[in-house]
Structure formats: C-alpha cells, structure tokens
Amino acid sequence: MSILERRKDIGILKALGAETTDILAIFIIESGFLGLFGGVIGLILGILLAKGIEIVAHKMGYLMVNAYISYELIVGILAFSFLVGVISGYFPAKSGAKLNPIETLRGE
C-alpha cells in the first residue's frame, strides 16, 4: 500500500472523528508488525545461511567453523526490527495526523 493511499486513509479517519492518538496507535501497531514480520524473514534467511556455511565448512574439513545463534541474538533482532517498524510508522503518521482532514485528504 502506497504512502499516498495511507495519507488519504488518515484524512478519512480524521474526517470521521478519529483523535490523533487513535491514528498514531493504528499506524504504529501496523508498521511495528510489518517490521517484526521483516525481522522474522531476515532471521530465517540468516539462520539458513549460517547453517549452510557451517555444513560446507565442515565438509571441507574446517570443523571449528560453527554457526552460533544465541537466544539473546534472536530476541534482540526481533525487538530491533519491531522498533524500526514502529519508528518508520510514527513519523509519517504524526505529520499526517497534525494536518487538518482536508489538507490530508488532498494528498491523493
């Protein structure tokens, strides 16, 4: 969904009587989960890649090369990607929510 489309939705929500906090909540939760989803995908790809390298390295005789993925690392990465999502949703939503509904709706 494009940013312009989102902007228009913010305008509609404001015209229907949404308060600034409602709009921030809706968009931050959404972008936070989008970020988290991206984090999960990245994590899976990362683990597969690390394990792949480990297997290849072992086959070549480098038995010391081991993929080490700690629980803390996983949690850290997921939390970080959620946070990045939240932040990337916060600023556009905040700027959209501050304008009056008509200015926001014109953004189409």
């Binding site: 969904m1 509609i12 015209a15 229907l16 009587g17 949404a18 308060e19 600034t20 509904p101």
Partner: peptide
C-alpha cells in the same frame, strides 16, 4: 481543541463526500 473537534466530527456530524472516500481495504 483538536480533540473537541474530533468529538464534533464523530458524534454531532456526518460527512458525505463527492468521491465517497471509503477505506478500500
């Protein structure tokens, strides 16, 4: 205040646009 205006838009009035402005999703 902005919140008072939001209450007016939400409870006192309803707005119908020429372009409908429904949420597509």
């Amino acid at each position: 205040s902005e919140n008072k205006k939001a209450i007016f838009r939400r409870k006192i009035s309803g707005f119908i646009f020429q372009q409908f402005h429904l949420i597509k999703t």
